[in-house]
């Protein structure tokens, strides 16, 4: 059972993600996590402002149920399926991060420098989380999909638009990591 508690290698994880996609397709749905954000807007009454959110959200309840499950899954994974081992990052990555001021790279899933309460209660820390979330929410809808919808499902379905979107993901990601992040930290 030890292998379950250790981090799972890519050749196990990748196929399991493909299985999640397959099972959702078999259930008559699609693997596209970002639709939950649209559904939440619709539930919140965003349909009053624009037609974009005027649809029967009850038909999309399933993607909120997936989200609820994902929260529980996250809890189960760290509580019962973890041996506390750190993330085996490339030592180069660790030293690059140290230069930026991230001192505990790989010891937990996320850097405390961004996500701890102490960081959030500064103007800069709060701004980082809000800007990051806003860009993800805005960009995913503009591009009509996120990592699951484009990088996994779209590419699996050989969709050219998805390839363009994935190229976009990388343009944005590379600019953030190589240009902007060193300016922020």
């Amino acid at each position: 059972m030890d292998f379950l508690l250790q981090p799972w290698p890519w050749y196990v994880s990748g196929p399991l993600i493909a299985f999640v996609m397959l099972i959702l397709v078999y259930f008559g749905k699609t693997f596209g996590m970002s639709s939950n954000l649209t559904t939440l807007c619709s539930i919140g009454g965003a349909g009053k402002y624009t037609d974009f959110f005027r649809f029967d959200w009850k038909a999309h309840r399933w993607n909120l149920i997936v989200v609820l499950g994902a929260i529980v899954g996250g809890f189960i994974a760290v509580t019962f399926l973890s041996d506390g081992s750190s993330i085996a990052l490339n030592p180069e990555t660790v030293s690059d991060l140290r230069e930026l001021g991230f001192c505990e790279a790989g010891e937990s899933l996320l850097p405390p420098e961004i996500f701890d309460w102490g960081s959030i209660f500064s103007l800069k820390g709060l701004a980082i989380l809000i800007v990051a979330g806003f860009l993800v929410g805005f960009g995913t809808r503009y591009a009509n999909g996120c990592t699951s919808g484009h990088a996994i499902t779209g590419l699996s379905n050989l969709q050219l638009p998805s390839l363009i979107a994935v190229v976009g993901f990388f343009i944005g990601g590379l600019i953030m990591i190589h240009v902007l992040l060193p300016l922020i930290f």
Binding site: V131, A132, G133, F134, L135, V136, G137, F138, G139, T140, R141, Y142, A143, N144, C146, H150, I164, A165, V166, V167, G168, F169, F170, I171, G172, G173, L174, I175, M176, L180
Partner: peptide, 8 residues
């Protein structure tokens, strides 16, 4: 949209 998403 993809680039904006990637930044976030």
């Amino acid at each position: 949209g993809g680039s904006i998403f990637g930044l976030g």
